[in-house]
Nucleic acid binder design. Structure first.
Length: 465
RNA sequence: GUGCCUGUAGUUCAGUUGGUUAGAAUAUCAGAUUGUGGUCCUGAGGGUCGUGAGUUCGAAUCUCACCAGGCACCCCA
């Protein structure tokens, strides 16, 4: 094909869009039911807003947009009086990062949480806290695409900012439960708390190594205990450190059992105790809210480094797919933009992955591909006038209908109705005009019924049946 | 950024140890009663065999390079 779409991006056909909208509508409905309000932010943000918020890996995955203008003037060789040879210096020093900042100042958003934090700071005076917003927009990541991974995909975020009550965490869990129940997708919610992870690092005495520890233990169910310990040793952890981490990785049992085992291990660590307290509060309330399928997962780490409290991830049970929803609490995301003491907590549904799961499990309802209910076959100018007024009356009754635009062969017009899965066709030709009749053909059964045209909508009840 | 796999009609794929003009199914379009679709029948269009080089009398087939796509790791929705 000559004109491909960009790798990792897709076109969507009508049927696919109807399926996507089914997911979006389900999520929006639940968000609204919980009192969240919609906002949007631009696709493009200044790179200064985005850079450094997602870790080093995230910076690499940002799509950067080239400035307009002519860079050759910035790259004159030799020292010129204006000092405009910075680009050449960058080339000489192999400093591509600095060079990037010289020629790119904008980038495509990587997620919706950071732009939201920026939004909150910019609109402090227009917002009343706690602020509950939802936002459904595409995000872009310069990743290498693979199954369930796209370069352009939709996130469906809900965040509550300006309240540190753990009731917010509980509400978000309820939302997750409602959305996936409604979609009939069996899921497992994995819950953890960053404070617990921090405390583990503290207990070992390697607070600065929290990222290494979490990344390693995150792989526990993938590569197994031995390899995780091996990886830790490679990362400069001593034999003693590893021995301290080992019992934590071996914790098993029900949520309550895991909690009590950790309580013993993390005893004396203020952060750890706080984390465990938060976690058990949330789990307890979630239980009272009758949310099932929540697992306390010590190995859940999540790379986004702005999380400070609860972290969660949702996986589909019956299909091989990465996490389809993620989220957590961030205590100081607006702090980076100059406004302190605003704690937020949010979740994000990955629409594209949910789509893939529903498709694989055949869980899309049959009736979502709504189409035209009735097609008027075009017999010519005179006949069309009759169709126009009939169509108008039908639309007033909220029946979607259309008149075939060209006076083509009946066969072609019938085929159009068939291809578009239009259930009814109206035929008003010379004969019918003369007899003041309209013939309605049921495309499913093939039956044709003749109605009196004066009683224009006498066939209405049949269409709706 | 690292590793593995795959490139033949719009799509899904055949194509024998290298051998004449590269096939099928499906989709598209047209016809089979000029006022009737979905089934059936007939026909048509559609391919620089990913690109380029090499080996050979001869390459879709063998070799190399490049390009594209997919999958896994990393990380994530």
């Amino acid at each position: 094909m000559e004109y491909k779409v960009v790798k990792g991006t897709r076109d969507f056909l009508p049927l696919q869009m109807q399926k996507r909208n089914y997911i979006f509508n389900t999520i929006i409905e639940v968000y609204k039911r919980h009192g969240f309000l919609p906002i949007e932010t631009p696709a493009l943000e200044n790179l200064s807003t985005l850079m450094g918020k997602y870790g080093e890996e995230g910076d690499k995955l940002l799509f950067k947009v080239l400035n307009s203008g002519d860079f050759t003037s910035l790259a004159t060789t030799g020292n010129n009086p204006n000092g405009n040879d910075v680009l050449c210096d960058c080339v000489k020093n192999n400093d591509y990062k600095k060079m990037t900042t010289m020629i790119c100042e904008k980038g495509l958003r990587y997620d919706l949480t950071v732009p939201f934090a920026r939004f909150v700071v910019n609109h402090l005076n227009d917002i009343s806290f706690p602020f509950k917003r939802y936002q459904i927009q595409p995000v872009w990541r310069a990743d290498r695409p693979q199954k369930g991974r796209y370069r352009e995909f939709y996130q469906c975020d809900a965040d509550i900012i300006g309240s540190d009550s753990l009731m917010n965490e509980v509400e978000l869990l309820e939302i997750i439960d409602e959305v996936f129940s409604s979609l009939k997708l069996n899921v497992n919610i994995k819950l953890n708390n960053r404070k617990i992870l921090a405390s583990i690092a503290q207990v070992i005495g390697k607070q600065d190594k929290i990222v290494d520890i979490t990344v390693a233990i995150d792989k526990l169910d993938k590569i197994g205990m031995d390899k995780v310990l091996e990886e830790l040793k490679e990362k400069d952890f001593s034999e003693q450190d590893v021995e301290k981490i080992k019992p934590i990785l071996m914790i098993k049992g029900t949520n309550e059992e895991k909690l009590s085992q950790l309580k013993t291990i993390l005893q004396g660590s203020a952060v750890g105790e706080k984390g465990l307290e938060e976690l058990s509060y949330v789990m307890d309330k979630a239980k009272k809210a009758e949310i099932k399928n929540i697992d306390f997962d010590i190995t859940l780490a999540r790379g986004l480094n702005y999380y400070t409290g609860a972290i969660l991830e949702v996986k589909a049970n019956d299909v091989q797919m990465g996490s389809i929803t993620g989220g957590g609490r961030y205590d100081n995301l607006t702090g980076i933009f100059g406004v302190k003491d605003l704690s937020g907590v949010g979740i994000s549904f990955g629409e594209d992955r949910i789509y893939d799961c529903l498709e694989e499990l055949n869980l899309f309802p049959q009736d979502i591909s709504t189409t035209t209910t009735l097609l008027f076959v075009n017999f010519g100018e005179k006949e069309n006038e009759m169709c126009l007024s009939l169509a108008k009356s039908l639309r007033k009754e909220n029946v979607s209908c259309e008149i075939y635009p060209d006076c083509s062969k009946i066969k072609k017009q019938m085929k159009y109705a068939n291809d578009k899965k239009i259930p009814f066709v109206a035929l008003i030709g010379e004969k019918e005009i003369e007899d003041k009749q309209v013939v309605i053909k049921n495309m499913t059964t093939g039956e044709q019924t003749t109605y009196n045209i004066d009683d224009a909508l006498s066939f209405l009840s049949d269409l709706k049946a």
